[in-house]
């Protein structure tokens, strides 16, 4: 269980990351965190990972601060958590020494599946290849908590679908997954729950099945909660 308790994060004196929010992510749930750029998605994930200092509040993972449970956490991010100077093979060795549950066979199998050259430096790879290394590593750590920040960026449509299929087949059912994205079509049927962020605030938090009982689509709910105006473009034609 991941608990955010009155978490506030400001960058500098006034730039908002998150505004005093509390939310709990239950074990075994897959939650999509959606919102525009700058809405606080990345801040929330980084805060959970302990990668930024909180302005206020605290975050507990299974009742403990993240610093004592790093071995249970996996963070898959666009920025990459690998060392660019390493080859994927060297990176795998590094992870093995750090994560007790790291599955080297699985990591190598994923690299092969993604057609990634094991012995060339990650630095010299394309954006898409780098994100594949990141994903392969992130899913081989044997982590209980998997946090993904925009994992689909830099991937073409086919890779995105491959990635989803792969991710699903690698789940053991106990993992708790948080996935931030603005590609709602991709995750619409994949997530149990949706948290919508806007300007550092949680604007909505619901389960997909409950939402569908109301007869609405995710896109509609998203437009309603964020106040998106579909007719806005028509202003262009007004003179």
């Amino acid at each position: 269980m991941i608990e955010l308790i009155n978490v506030k994060k400001y960058y500098g004196l006034s730039r908002t990351g998150l505004e005093k929010e509390s939310v709990t992510f239950n074990d075994g749930e897959i939650t999509g965190i959606i919102g525009e750029n700058g809405s606080g998605k990345t801040t929330m994930l980084k805060a959970i990972m302990g990668l930024c200092e909180l302005t206020e509040g605290r975050i507990l993972i299974d009742g403990l601060p993240v610093t004592s449970v790093y071995g249970k956490m996996s963070f898959i991010t666009e920025e990459g958590s690998y060392f660019p100077g390493m080859t994927p093979l060297e990176y795998g060795d590094f992870l093995k020494s750090f994560f007790a549950g790291f599955d080297m066979d699985r990591f190598l199998k994923l690299l092969e599946y993604f057609e990634i050259e094991k012995n060339s430096k990650i630095r010299n790879m394309s954006r898409g290849q780098k994100s594949k290394v990141e994903i392969a590593a992130g899913f081989s750590k044997g982590a209980k908590y998997i946090l993904m920040d925009e994992p689909f960026l830099g991937n073409d449509m086919f890779t995105r679908h491959d990635f989803l299929k792969l991710m699903i087949s690698s789940l053991r059912g106990e993992e708790t997954i948080l996935i931030s994205t603005h590609l709602i079509n991709e995750i619409e049927n994949f997530v149990d729950r949706i948290v919508i962020l806007q300007m550092g605030r949680i604007k909505a938090d619901f389960y997909m099945d409950d939402m569908k009982e109301t007869g609405k689509s995710l896109k509609e709910v998203l437009m309603e909660t964020t106040g998106y105006d579909e007719e806005w473009y028509k202003k262009l034609f007004d003179t």
């Binding site: 075994g28 749930e29 897959i30 679908h161 989803l164 299929k165 792969l166 699903i168 087949s169 789940l171 059912g173 049927n189 994949f190 997530v191 149990d192």
Partner: peptide, 14 residues
Amino acid sequence: RRELAAMLEINPNT
């Protein structure tokens, strides 16, 4: 369950 979830790209819990 896992096979079907992966094929349809849906959540195994579903």
